[in-house]
C-alpha cells in the first residue's frame, strides 16, 4: 500500500500535476505504513493474516492468537520431531523450509543420522503448517518426522495454549478449532481422492493380469 502511494505521487510529480500540500489521510497512512516495525515483515499477526485458513479471524483476534503462540528457531538439519514421537502441538512455518520425512520400516524409530530407509516426502515453505492432528488427538503419535532445512522459524501452538484460549477467549478458540478442522477436512478429502485413484489403478492392474 505504501508503495502504491509513493508511485502515485511520483507519477503526479513527473507528469507535472499539482501535488497537494496539505496533510491528508493518504499521507498519514503512508507514514504509518512506512513504520519499520510494520514494514519489516517480522510481525506475527501480519504473518498470520496471510494464511488463508485463518481468514475468519479479525486483526485483534490474530493479535491475541499470536500471543499464545511459541516462536521457536531451528538450526540447519535440526529435528523438530521424530516419527512415532508422542505429539503435543501444531506448527506454522514462519520462515525457512521444513522437510517432512517418513521411515519406510514402520516398526523402527527413525535414525536421522543415516539416510537408509528415510524418504523425504515433501518440503514445506513459509506459511504452511504441519502436526495439526496432535492438537486434537489424545496421545497422538507423529506419523512422519520433521527436519529443518537450512534453518527455520516456527510458530508452535500446543494443547495447553488451546485450553487457555478456550477459557479466556472462547470465540478465538472456536475459530481456531474451525480452522484446524478445515485443514484436516482438506487433508482428508485429498487423501480419500488419492485412495480412490489408487483403488482404480489396482483394479486396472488386476484386470490386466486376468
Amino acid at each position: 500500500m505504501a508503495g502504491s502511494y509513493e508511485s502515485e505521487q511520483r507519477a503526479k510529480i513527473l507528469s507535472g500535476e499539482e501535488v497537494t500540500e496539505n496533510v491528508n489521510i493518504s499521507t498519514l497512512k503512508y507514514f504509518w505504513l512506512s513504520n519499520p516495525r510494520l514494514s519489516s515483515g517480522k510481525n506475527i499477526p501480519k504473518f498470520l493474516r496471510s494464511i488463508p485458513v485463518l481468514g475468519n479471524f479479525t486483526d485483534n483476534e490474530l493479535r491475541i492468537l499470536s500471543r499464545h503462540m511459541h516462536h521457536r528457531s531451528f538450526g540447519d538439519g535440526e529435528v523438530i520431531f521424530r516419527q512415532n514421537d508422542v505429539g503435543f502441538g501444531f506448527y506454522l512455518l514462519y520462515g525457512g523450509h521444513v522437510d517432512i520425512m517418513v521411515n519406510v520400516r514402520e516398526e523402527d524409530v527413525p535414525d536421522m543420522s543415516s539416510d537408509q530407509d528415510v524418504t523425504r516426502i515433501l518440503t514445506l515453505e513459509s506459511g504452511e503448517y504441519f502436526g495439526e492432528l496432535s492438537l486434537l488427538q489424545e496421545h497422538s503419535v507423529r506419523n512422519a518426522s520433521a527436519v529443518s532445512r537450512q534453518g527455520c522459524e516456527l510458530l508452535g501452538l500446543f494443547k495447553p495454549d488451546v485450553d487457555q484460549l478456550i477459557l479466556q477467549y472462547p470465540v478465538i478458540a472456536a475459530k481456531l478449532l474451525q480452522s484446524v478442522s478445515q485443514i484436516i477436512a482438506n487433508r482428508f478429502y485429498s487423501l480419500s481422492r488419492e485412495v480412490r485413484e489408487l483403488k482404480f489403478k489396482i483394479s486396472q492392474i488386476e484386470k490386466a493380469q486376468v
Binding site: G75, M112, S113, S114, V118
Partner: peptide, 14 residues
Amino acid sequence: MIEKHLSKWRNREI
C-alpha cells in the same frame, strides 16, 4: 544428507 548438519546443532543443543 542430514548427517553433516547434525554435529553443528548437537553441540548447541547440549
